[in-house]
């Protein structure tokens, strides 16, 4: 702690949140105004966005207004400050679109611990349980517990696509199996696979932050010696070019279709592929691609609007023509 850091313990308990809707062009001047008065000079800008049902093609939506917020300590802020801000916004409103100033009282307890509610002990499969580092959990006889520090990289275990993939993993994993986890994110699936009895898991992700997070999480769970992580994918240039007893890919439909040949090449006869992260409306496109690649459809599972598919490797080695 340095002297300049605010003392969050003795700071007034009540805060005033000031927010306003404005167009993109007005964001900078409104932020500048808010930064002048806001606590620690901090400003929050929330941009509206559009996305496909599975999060693909995300883009900022310039047709809707942006929300700009700041916070002032309710007790040490003279009421004239709010009047000054309102007046300045009125002036800006003559140049650009700026909405009404909205005031809401907020208390520290509204947010300080609220987020931890999401990170209790969660059962995400039949046997796999995820817990945050600050929670203890006495596992039942057949449970395996994955400790995850929630944060960077996707995969807290709370998403239906992760849960579906864990269920597929629990059903399909044979003790001593070799597993490939494509798009590992936080490494939750790779770690669960080792804890469920895999001999070795190779994990890949194209995002460096995911590679780093998976390494950290594997070490945290004492399985770093059985999880190899590399930046990359499947197909040409793949860091792990072999074949596996079980391949897991929890990504999204478009990417799964793009990776069809690389994923299929990693599944030998007798091997199994679990695909997840497929939004229901794109299921058929994924099924067509993987059936065309020679994999044998076994079954589908669904949770909310998310689908997982299980395939077997080609029934006989492909004859070269």
């Amino acid at each position: 702690m340095t002297e300049s850091e605010p003392d969050t313990v003795t700071q007034a308990p009540a805060w005033l949140e000031l927010s306003v809707e404005c167009d993109t062009e007005a964001v900078e001047p409104v932020s500048e105004l808010f930064a002048r008065h806001g606590y620690n000079g901090g400003v929050v800008i929330e941009e509206p966005f559009t996305q496909d049902p599975d999060g693909d093609n995300i883009a900022v939506d310039p047709s809707r207004p942006v929300v700009v917020r700041t916070f002032v300590a309710a007790t040490d802020t003279p009421p004239t400050v709010v009047d000054e801000i309102r007046e300045a916004l009125w002036h800006l409103g003559r140049l650009r679109h700026v909405g009404e100033l909205v005031l809401v009282e907020r208390r520290e307890e509204d947010w300080a611990n609220a987020w931890k509610e999401h990170y209790r002990v969660h059962r995400i499969g039949r046997r796999v349980v995820v817990r945050a580092p600050w929670h203890d959990h006495e596992p039942a006889a057949d449970e395996v517990v994955v400790e995850l520090d929630p944060g960077m990289a996707f995969g807290t275990g709370l998403h239906p696509s992760t849960k579906l993939c864990v269920l597929g993993l629990e059903d399909e994993l044979r003790p001593g199996a070799r597993v490939l986890d494509v798009g590992t994110g936080s490494g939750v699936l790779a770690i669960a696979a080792v804890l469920l009895g895999a001999a070795r898991v190779d994990a890949v992700d194209i995002e460096p932050v995911a590679v780093r997070t998976t390494r950290e999480n594997a070490a945290r769970n004492g399985v770093a010696d059985r999880v190899a992580v590399a930046e990359g994918s499947v197909g040409p240039g793949a860091p792990f070019p072999g074949t596996y007893d079980l391949v897991l890919a929890n990504i999204i439909a478009r990417v799964l279709v793009d990776l069809t040949s690389g994923l299929a090449a990693a599944v030998p006869p007798g091997g199994t592929l679990v695909l997840s992260g497929i939004i229901e409306s794109r299921e058929q496109a994924v099924r067509r691609a993987f059936e065309d690649a020679g994999l044998v459809f076994d079954r589908r599972t669904q949770m909310e609007d998310w689908v997982a598919l299980v395939y077997r490797g080609p029934s006989a080695p492909t004859m070269s023509r």
């Binding site: 969050t8 932020s31 606590y39 620690n40 000079g41 901090g42 929050v44």
Partner: peptide, 28 residues
């Protein structure tokens, strides 16, 4: 991993001095 986005939040804050106080605490 399947990533459906819940929010895009931009924060204007001082480098190296982030704290859980507003605006970061309530915004996130």
């Amino acid at each position: 991993m399947a990533k459906r986005v819940r929010a895009y939040v931009k924060l204007q804050i001082a480098a190296g001095k982030a704290t859980p106080a507003p605006p970061i605490g309530p915004a996130l």
